[in-house]
Design a protein around this nucleic acid. Sequence first.
DNA 1: CGGCTGACGACCT
DNA 2: GAGGTCGCCAGCC
Length: 131
Amino acid sequence: MTVAMANRSGYDPRRHGPRRIIGPGFHAKVYEVVVSVPPGRVTTFGDVAARLGLRSAARQVGYALAALPPERDDVPWYRVVNARGMLSPRADGQPSAEQRQLLASEGVDVDERGRVVDFASLRLRRDDAPP
DNA sequence: CGGCTGACGACCT
DNA sequence: GAGGTCGCCAGCC
């Protein structure tokens, strides 16, 4: 017996984390976490969500960054990639060239498939320290 | 106030 | 490895 097979149609906290309502200001919290990502490092949507206590809300983190207002140019959105270390494709189906360039300016290389080179080492996890 | 819009992640076959 | 399913929520028309 495992929790994984408990109920397929129901909610599995082991997998998705706690059900919790962040409430208004969710976007602002996302931005705050992203601001704390140091130059030359990257993090993931899921890690940001986990840091907010909502592992299951990775998608919402993406939505929040998609809605990032231009005046929030203090938020290094480009340091956020997906869990595989890939730059998330935008509406046109390809990764943002601007994101690639901004990362490159910090010494973070992105290969031709859109994946961050040496992602495992550069990834900033919730309670991770630089090597 | 109803409906639509979005940068994801983990599992399963 | 690739493709599909399900679960998440706040903003802005």
